[in-house]
Design a protein around this nucleic acid. Structure first.
Length: 726
DNA sequence: TAGTTCTGTCATAGC
DNA sequence: AGGCTATGACAGAAC
C-alpha cells in the first residue's frame, strides 16, 4: 500500500493537479484496480476529510461564525482571513480578465468534508501567474478547512465582469466582516445560495500540508459550466492528455514543487451535494442543456444586478469562452471602470489632496504661505493651479511674502475664524481622532439610528396598561391579564386556587427573569438593542412560556427554590393565619373586589392586617421590579443617546473639516486673484507697482483700491481708533 | 471570605 | 383620605 501511495503521489497526483488547474477533474479511482479502496483512502486513510459538503453545512464551524470568542480556533480563523485577503489582493493585482477561475481549496474537517469552490472572476492566470506567495498561502489554505471556499464564494458574484469584480469584491469583504461580527449571516447565505447550483467543485487537497492546495480552474465565464453535474463521469486520462496538448502549453518548471500527497476524489454519495456534484470538466460535453446553463447564468447576472457583458451565449466551449478575445478587450474598460471606482472609494480618504478641479493638467506646485495649512489639512495648492506661470517667478516669491500683509487685512477675519477652528480642533483632538471617529461613524452609520429604536411601549405605558388591566380585570381574569409579577406558594391552596396559582407561576417566572435575571440574556438584549426593547414588564406572555434552559444560577435556584423562597414568607404567614384565599388574589384583585372578598370571610383583625400587609408587599414588590427595569431601560437609553450624540459629534467634526477645507480653498483663490490683479497694475510710466510699497484694499463700498502701505497703516490705525471709540 | 448581584421589603413622596 | 405607584435605601441570599 505504501508503495502504491508513493507511486500515486509522485505521478498521478501531480498530473491530476495540472488537470485540475485546467478545470478537468479526473477520477483516479476509476484507474485503480477494483479491489483497491478508493484512492483517497489509500492515501489518507478511510477517515479522510475529502467529503464534499455544502457551504451552509460549514456554517458555524469553519467560517468563524460560531467560533467561541475564546476559542483557539479564532486565531486560526483570523489568520486564515488575513492570508486569504492577501491572496485575493494578490489575485486582483494580476492582469484581470473576464474569465472565471475556481479556487479549489481543500477542506479537512472533522466531519470529513471537503469544500467545494465556486467560480470567481479572476484573471486567466496561467500557473506562472499564480502569486509567488502561494506557498505561504498553502498552509493557511489547508487550515482554512473550506472556510475560504465560502469566502471565496462571495466573490463569485462578480463573474465575467471586471467592474463587477472590482465592485463586489470589497462588498464581499464587508459581508464577510459582517459575518465575523455575527450579523447578516442569513443574508450572506442567501446571497450565495443563489448560486448553489453553480461553481461547486470538488476540492483537491492535501492534508499533509503539501502543496498545490490552491488551484485555479478555467470556468465558463458565461454559463458557469463548472456547475456540478449529476452523473457526469470522469474523464479519461487520455482525453485529458489530448486536451492538454491541444489547448495548453504547460511549463513544468512552473510547478517545481513535487506533487503533494494529494487526492482529488471524494467519496461518492456521502452527502446530498456529492450526488449532485459529479466530476466535471469544462472540456466535457455539457450534459445540461445550454439553455439551463444560460438561464443559470442569467439568473446569476440578474442577481448581480449587472448588465451582462459581451457574452457569447452560443459558445458551449468554456475554453473558447475563456479565451474569447472580445472579452479580453474589455479589460481596458474594466480597468478604467476600476480606476473610477477606486477614485470614488477615496471620497473621504485622508490622503485625498485633490479638490475637484476637473482635468487640470497643471502640476501641483507648492503653495506659498499656506503650506503649513496645506500640510495640516492636506490641501491642494489652488493658486498653483490657477497661476502656475507665476509660481516660479522670483518676483512673486518676494511679493508673496509682502503681499500677505494686504491679504491679512482681507482675510483677517476668516483667518481668525480658521485659527479658532483649528484650535478647537486641536483641543478636541480633531486631527487625531477624526479618523477613528469617522471610522466609528462609518461603522455605525451602516445601521439605523439607535435612538429611534425605542420600543413603542414605554415603561410608563406598560405600567399604565398593566395597572389599568389589573384594576379593570375581573377576579376571574386577573391571572390572565393583569396579575403579573406575583406568585404564591400553592401548597395551602384549595384545588381551584392551586390550579390558578400553578398556572400562574410561569408568568411569574418570566416576569421575574425577563431581563435582569440572566446577565447573558441581558447582554443579548444589549446586542439587539436596536431591534427593540421589551418593555412589557407586566405583560402576560402571549403564549405559555416554555421551559427555557436557564443558565447556571437560574437552573439551580429556579423554579423551586427561588419560588419557595420568594413566596415563602407571606405564604407561610398566610398559612399560619389560615387565610382562606390565595395571595395572588390578595395582591392582584382590585380594591373593590378585594374588599368584597374580605367581607365574604369573617377574618380576625390579625388576619386582616396580614392580608393587607401581603397585598402591600406584593404590590410593592412588583413596583420595585418595574422600577428597576425602568431604571435599567433609562440607562440603556442614555447609553444609546450617548452613542447617537457621539455620532452626531463626529458628523459635525467632519463637516467642520470640510468647511475648513472650503475656507482654505477660497482663501487661496483670493490670494491668487490678488496676485493676478496686483501684478497687472501699472503706474503712469508702465512699471509694475512694488508690493512692498503698495497694497490693494477693499473699500466699504466694495471697490478695490490701490493704496500705499504707509497710508494703509494710517488707515488701519484710524479704523482702530474708531473701533475703540465705539 | 469578600465582593457582586439579585430580590424583597420598608419608608416615603407624589398622584 | 385612602389607595396606588414610584423610588431610594437596606438587608438577605446566592454566586
Amino acid at each position: 500500500m505504501l508503495s502504491l501511495k508513493k507511486y500515486l503521489t509522485e505521478g498521478l497526483i501531480q498530473f491530476t493537479i495540472l488537470l485540475s488547474l485546467m478545470g478537468v477533474r479526473v477520477d483516479l479511482d476509476s484507474y485503480l484496480p477494483s479491489h483497491l479502496p478508493p484512492l483517497h483512502e489509500i492515501i489518507l486513510g478511510p477517515t479522510s476529510a475529502y467529503t464534499q459538503t455544502q457551504f451552509h453545512s460549514l456554517r458555524g464551524t469553519s467560517d468563524g461564525y460560531g467560533v467561541h470568542p475564546k476559542s483557539v480556533d479564532l486565531d486560526q480563523f483570523f489568520t486564515s482571513r488575513r492570508l486569504l485577503s492577501r491572496m485575493r489582493a494578490l489575485d486582483r493585482l494580476q492582469v484581470p480578465s473576464t474569465e472565471l477561475d475556481a479556487w479549489l481549496v481543500h477542506r479537512e474537517a472533522e466531519s470529513s468534508v471537503s469544500s467545494a469552490q465556486t467560480g470567481s472572476s479572476r484573471s486567466t492566470d496561467s500557473p506562472q501567474n499564480l502569486p509567488t506567495s502561494e506557498s505561504s498561502l498553502r498552509d493557511s489554505l489547508e487550515n482554512e478547512q473550506g472556510r475560504e471556499s465560502e469566502e471565496l464564494g462571495a466573490s463569485a458574484q462578480c463573474e465575467n465582469t471586471e467592474l463587477g469584480k472590482e465592485e463586489i469584491d470589497p462588498i464581499d469583504i464587508l459581508w464577510l466582516q459582517d459575518i465575523d461580527l455575527g450579523a447578516g449571516r442569513e443574508d450572506f447565505e442567501s446571497r450565495h445560495n443563489h448560486k448553489d447550483n453553480e461553481d461547486v467543485w470538488e476540492s483537491l487537497g492535501d492534508s499533509s500540508g503539501s502543496e498545490n492546495v490552491e488551484h485555479r480552474l478555467l470556468v465558463d465565464g458565461e454559463t458557469g459550466e463548472n456547475v456540478p453535474q449529476e452523473g457526469q463521469t470522469a474523464m479519461s486520462l487520455a482525453e485529458c492528455l489530448s486536451l492538454l496538448d491541444d489547448n495548453f502549453q504547460f511549463d513544468s518548471s512552473e510547478f517545481p514543487a513535487p506533487p503533494p500527497t494529494n487526492i482529488l476524489d471524494t467519496e461518492p454519495d456521502q452527502t446530498g451535494l456529492e450526488q449532485a456534484d459529479g466530476l466535471l470538466s469544462p472540456f466535457l460535453p455539457n450534459i445540461e442543456t445550454p439553455l439551463d446553463l444560460e438561464e443559470q447564468w442569467q439568473d446569476l447576472m440578474s442577481l448581480m444586478d449587472m448588465q451582462p457583458m459581451d457574452i457569447n451565449s452560443s459558445s458551449e466551449d468554456p475554453l473558447y469562452l475563456s479565451m474569447d478575445p472580445s472579452l479580453q478587450q474589455n479589460e481596458g474598460i474594466h480597468q478604467t471602470a476600476f480606476q473610477g471606482c477606486s477614485q470614488n472609494m477615496s471620497v473621504y480618504s485622508p490622503t485625498m489632496e485633490h479638490f475637484p478641479v476637473p482635468d487640470s493638467p497643471l502640476p501641483q506646485l507648492s503653495s506659498h504661505n499656506s503650506t503649513d495649512l496645506n500640510s495640516t489639512f492636506g490641501f491642494t495648492n489652488f493658486s498653483g493651479i490657477l497661476f502656475p506661470s507665476q509660481q516660479n517667478s522670483t518676483a512673486n516669491v518676494t511679493a508673496t511674502n509682502v503681499l500677505q500683509d494686504p491679504l491679512s487685512g482681507i482675510l483677517d477675519e476668516a483667518l481668525l475664524d480658521e485659527i479658532s477652528l483649528m484650535e478647537l480642533a486641536l483641543e478636541e483632538g480633531f486631527s487625531q481622532i477624526q479618523a477613528s471617529q469617522l471610522q466609528e461613524e462609518l461603522d455605525s452609520d451602516s445601521g439605523l439610528s439607535l435612538d429611534s429604536h425605542r420600543s413603542p411601549v414605554s415603561p410608563s405605558g406598560s405600567e399604565t396598561s398593566s395597572s389599568s388591566s389589573c384594576s379593570s380585570s375581573s377576579s376571574s381574569s386577573f391571572s390572565e391579564e393583569g396579575a403579573v409579577g406575583y406568585s404564591s406558594d400553592s401548597e395551602m391552596m384549595e384545588p381551584e386556587e392551586s390550579e390558578e396559582s400553578i398556572s400562574y407561576q410561569p408568568e411569574y417566572s418570566k416576569f421575574c427573569r425577563m431581563s435582569s435575571e440572566d446577565p447573558s440574556r441581558f447582554q443579548r438584549l444589549l446586542f439587539l438593542e436596536h431591534v427593540g426593547h421589551n418593555h412589557t414588564y407586566n405583560m402576560v406572555p402571549d403564549e405559555p412560556e416554555e421551559e427555557q434552559p436557564q443558565p447556571a444560577r437560574g437552573s439551580s435556584r429556579r423554579p423551586s427554590v427561588f419560588l419557595d423562597r420568594q413566596a415563602g414568607r407571606d405564604e407561610q404567614r398566610a398559612r399560619a393565619m389560615k387565610i382562606p384565599f390565595s395571595n395572588e388574589k390578595i395582591i392582584n384583585l382590585p380594591v373593590e373586589e378585594f374588599n368584597e372578598l374580605l367581607t365574604k370571610y369573617q377574618l380576625t383583625e390579625a388576619q386582616l392586617c396580614l392580608v393587607r400587609d401581603i397585598r402591600r408587599r406584593g404590590k410593592n414588590k412588583m413596583a420595585a421590579q418595574n422600577c428597576r427595569k425602568r431604571k435599567l431601560d433609562t440607562i440603556l437609553n442614555l447609553e444609546q443617546e450617548v452613542k447617537r450624540l457621539s455620532r452626531e459629534r463626529s458628523s459635525q467634526l467632519r463637516e467642520k473639516g470640510e468647511n475648513l477645507r472650503s475656507l482654505q480653498r477660497m482663501k487661496q483663490e483670493v490670494e491668487s486673484l490678488y496676485q493676478e490683479v496686483f501684478s497687472q497694475l501699472r503706474d503712469q510710466e508702465g512699471r509694475p507697482y512694488s508690493p512692498q510699497r503698495y497694497a490693494l484694499h477693499y473699500t466699504s463700498n466694495g471697490n478695490i483700491v490701490l493704496m500705499p502701505r504707509n497710508a494703509e497703516g494710517q488707515q488701519s490705525r484710524r479704523s482702530e481708533r474708531k473701533d475703540r471709540r465705539k
